[in-house]
Design a protein around this nucleic acid. Structure first.
Lengths: 331, 331
DNA sequence: CTGTTAGCGCTTTCAT
DNA sequence: ATGAAAGCGCTAACAG
């Protein structure tokens, strides 16, 4: 069932059908009614692909993220989807797993599909977009990065000042009377944003007069197990650390579990902080002090930026969000 | 840049270009090379919309869910997306918020777009699809429901036996020596699946000889606050309940927090169980005993079902998954 | 106000 | 092996 069938049955031309389909004027109420009746009779839906071919757009946005299951990403994706849905776009979600090959595949698919815009969620893409193939596929598309900065011409970015975010956590620990040279950082990822965090940590510590702050950075894998496992190593420190600033909430909770397993009390013996202010931070006990990197605001700004880019009204091309610290029981 | 431009520059016809684009034979290596050179020169990507118009498909799947931020849904969406990506489909995600009007809008958009298949995630859609407009838009499309059953012809379903799931929790509490007539159920949602759960609860309890089991069902809102708030009411029970079986992990954790705030120990004084076996259940302390409703398996089966439906090879049309109980510290 | 016609960019017969 | 031409379903001038 297509527009020709409708036109035939309503005894009009396809243009007239097209007009009522698109709510254009210059159609008598009578004709309109006649056509509408046929439309209703067959519960007709115009073919968006054919429309898209003419319009050169199917009103779709693509979100590239590493893994939509990570709360921080799913929140971002959610907000972006909801906002674009309001503007009558549909949103394709891609889980790259952080893999170059997958990123390439998705980038190609996105280029094929003539999507109207793409949002890169997470600073992993800073590196991934260095790839010739990825950047070639994405070049020219309206593109914004959520917490990232890529080397693609015309890419806009919403940045989060993670350097300042980590600094907030460090300062808070000191302000709460934690021994300054007892504060350590636990890094669990190697993305651009992760690097900013531990640089922020080290910078803050050194400005507070602690030397060799970089030696106070520990590494582990992301997640509960990574956090718990890192505790072993961190506790070898003598004297015992006063506070553990973590790069992610989940890892921080792992740390708290590891400490609890050894009978070390949080926050009495050691303070702990996380990053993202995810829902996770409310589930553990004590609840987790966490840097709020304003995921929702970031997503909202991405939408605005991308929209303005799509409409050609380049109001601004880059924004930086200042994180805030949310203090809870763990510190 | 389109296929005509390529053909012109390569001094061949568009059909030949099309052939090399689609890796068809019947092209001399020489011609192929000549064309490939031009293709590479311009980094040409064929327009998938135009292709779609001919092929009558753009290889896209739509996922309708209430809210992708809910871990159980994001896990499902993730798995579905990954699997379909392997099969070179792209996936559109829709967050309906459980709203009828939004569901309608998405259903219409999906019908327009000629998507190849749709997955309805969650039993909310059991009711939502009762709507004439929604079912009219979706009718005819290859459609699979994850943990739901809708009244649309040809809809396939992956069901989770939530009746049995709740029963598992009840039996476990009894087996652990919890006073049988002290077990209560906390319901936080009103979806089809939620109803199966508290029916399962009541059924199990009555089979164990407890009368008026339905009176032992409490209601609250979904989430941490809902759970914590419900504690007030539940503790009015005299004697004090022996175990609280909850309909969702998050609510269960709220309950544990509420109990902790009152100095009631879990599991010593009261046992608690959740549902979904989400990552949440590992974050709280004690860790939460939870019914594992096999989200990943459900998603995988959805993909298989949908794929077979799309390919016309109707191996089976409905599967039911048996949940399992994962016992942790809270019971 | 309504109809005719020319594309949108591609795939696919059907000739050659 | 290659090309010409029709058509996928729709929109948008342009006529009338």
């Amino acid at each position: 069932m297509n527009i020709y069938d409708i036109a035939e049955e309503a005894k009009v031309s396809i243009s007239t059908v097209s007009r009522v389909l698109n709510n254009k004027d210059r159609v008598t109420d009578e004709t309109r009614g006649k056509i509408q009746a046929v439309l209703d009779k067959y519960n007709y839906t115009p073919n968006a692909i054919a429309r898209g071919l003419v319009a050169k757009t199917m009103k779709t946005i693509a979100i590239l993220s590493v893994d939509i299951r990570v709360p921080h990403y799913s929140r971002t994706a959610f907000t972006i989807e909801r906002e674009f849905s309001k503007r009558s776009y549909n949103v394709i979600v891609c889980n790259t797993g952080g893999e170059l090959e997958e990123t390439r595949r998705y980038a190609r698919a996105i280029a094929h599909r003539q999507v109207d815009g793409v949002v890169l969620v997470g600073s992993v893409f800073n590196d991934l977009c260095g790839d010739t193939e990825v950047s070639a596929a994405l070049r020219g598309l309206p593109l914004v990065t959520a917490n990232g900065q890529v080397d693609i011409p015309n890419a806009y970015s919403v940045l989060i000042d993670d350097y300042a975010g980590a600094e907030l956590a460090v300062k808070h620990m000191a302000a709460r009377g934690r021994q300054r040279d007892g504060i350590v950082y636990l890094k669990d990822l190697n993305t651009g944003s992760a690097k900013m965090k531990w640089n922020g940590f080290a910078g803050a510590l050194e400005r507070m007069g602690v030397d060799n702050a970089k030696d106070r950075v520990f590494s582990t894998s992301y997640g509960l197990e990574g956090g718990a496992a890192a505790v072993n190593e961190i506790l070898r420190l003598n004297p015992r650390p006063s506070a553990i600033v973590c790069g992610e909430d989940l890892t921080a909770i792992g740390v708290m579990k590891g400490l609890a397993a050894r009978g070390i009390r949080v926050p009495d013996d050691i303070a702990v902080s996380g990053y993202n202010n995810s829902e996770y931070s409310l589930l553990c006990s004590p609840e987790l002090t966490s840097v709020d990197n304003k995921g929702e605001m970031c997503a909202l700004l991405c939408v605005q930026l991308l929209e303005s880019r799509i409409n050609g009204s380049n109001a601004f091309s880059s924004v930086t969000i200042k994180p805030e610290l949310v203090v809870r029981g763990s510190s």
